[in-house]
């Protein structure tokens, strides 16, 4: 088991954003995390990456308890993420953005020449090679999303957390992104993906976890989830059950 989350809790005032959530992820899986707006998906990712400290619960990653570890140590543990609202280094070039992942992430190199070469090939993977010397602030939103992915990849994670990376993409772009995500998995990286696009999440995930109001309401393959009355409840309301 690569990741094992047990009884994870996080409240904001009286609001239980993540309520006693358990789940686990095996090496090599793509796991989908879905749920309506405000159901606690991003909060879960924030807990996994140290951006929030859990109120209680355990997060075992790669045989190590990491709940509450500082956020800058998570990358070294082997977890990298993208942000729902992208956070590029605006005044740096694409290749510099990626080099930061390569020089501070897992298996970081101190050799800037090597880091630069690697960063070019990572940019190639996400289709940004020709934009290597463009400042992030001069990129479109779509390019910034790919850059964010490239940066996380450069950190050589074992587990990659993707928070709505595909939101706002058109059909063709989403298909391309799905292909990229499959390639990433094929390269040996385990993926936890948060996405609203049904086609993407169903097409990519080996397993799907459904959250509602901070609680896990269902878990299973795409087929199982689709016909699960609890999930239908969550998305369509009780009357349709």
């Amino acid at each position: 088991m690569l990741l094992q989350v047990e009884k994870l809790n996080k409240a904001f005032g009286g609001l239980k954003a993540v309520n006693n959530v358990d789940f686990s992820i095996q090496s090599g899986e793509i796991v989908g995390l879905i749920g309506p707006n405000g159901s606690g998906k991003t909060t879960t990712l924030n807990l996994l990456t140290g951006f929030l400290k859990p109120d209680s619960g355990s997060i075992m990653f790669d045989g190590k308890e990491i709940a509450g570890s500082p956020r800058c140590s998570m990358c070294g543990n082997g977890i990298a993420r993208t942000f729902q609202l992208v956070k590029p280094f605006l005044n740096l070039t694409a290749v510099q953005n990626v080099m930061i992942g390569r020089t501070f992430g897992k298996e970081a190199t101190m050799n800037l020449k090597l880091a630069e070469e690697d960063s070019f090939s990572i940019l190639e993977k996400v289709g940004l090679r020709s934009r290597a010397y463009v400042l992030a602030k001069d990129m479109t939103l779509m390019q910034r999303k790919r850059l964010e992915l490239a940066r996380a990849l450069a950190a050589k994670p074992k587990l990659l957390l993707l928070d709505e990376l595909m939101a706002g993409l058109n059909h063709a772009e989403a298909d391309e992104a799905m292909e990229t995500i499959r390639e990433i998995r094929a390269s040996g990286i385990t993926i936890l993906i948060v996405e609203h696009i049904v086609k993407a999440i169903m097409g990519l995930s080996d397993r799907i976890i459904v959250l509602n109001m901070g609680e896990k309401v269902a878990e299973g393959t795409a087929q199982e989830i689709m016909y699960d009355p609890r999930v239908i409840d969550v998305y369509l309301g009780k009357s349709h059950a």
């Binding site: 956020r71 070294g76 605006l90």
Partner: peptide, 26 residues
């Protein structure tokens, strides 16, 4: 400025959250 430390400093300047998520100790 031209070292790995410089890259980390600029990352902190540009976006502290993203920098830390990539392993930079701000």
């Amino acid at each position: 400025a031209n070292s790995r430390w410089g890259l980390g400093m600029m990352a902190v300047r540009e976006q502290e959250d993203a920098a830390e998520s990539l392993g930079v100790n701000a």
